[in-house]
Design a protein around this nucleic acid. Sequence first.
DNA 1: GGTGCGATTGCA
DNA 2: GCAATCGCACCA
Length: 189
Amino acid sequence: MLSHSKLKRNFYQRPTLKVAQDLLGKFLVHKYRGPSTSLDYARDKSLGAGKIYRGMIIETEAYTGFDDLACHGSRGMTERNKIMFQKGGYAYVYLIYGIYHCLNLVTEKEGKPSAVLIRGLDFPNADGPGKLCREFKITKKNCNGLDLTGDKLWVEDRGLGGFKIQKGPRVGIDYAKHCATWPWRFWIK
DNA sequence: GGTGCGATTGCA
DNA sequence: GCAATCGCACCA
């Protein structure tokens, strides 16, 4: 196997709980071609030709199906969550609190709302779902609906494994009643 | 057409 | 503890 292989669609078209754990230790990559701030240019003169952001995924959460009250798609398809109903291998990005964006990787089969929320990367200022999107220039406008088998946003397997996976309840979903305690959050040290 | 709030973050 | 800030879900 290639040491830097881009994950294919069949990786995502599996049970969401499995995908959420298998994404740990893989690398999120964003090839960004959009406008950069003057501060970005001061830090990195190569930005004019586009920039590649790459960081190891260290924390995820699973959201799947109509019985998961914390899943955005559990109450049916809407304009916001329609990407979640596609087949696995697409990016679902939404705006939260009017300020931050959250990146999800759609899983399973078409018609079943399922995705993995990327909550943290081993990368400076990318410890948190909102922070990693800000740091990696991921927004709803430029990433929602992107095909993860394409050349803008994808996940790489760099051959790292053997991590001890920790698990616990998902964050910030107290409103989801009995689902709030399900141990669907996963992370590695 | 009006209303209320969120899969977050940073600061007091 | 709590404000920021807005798309959108939901109700009328």
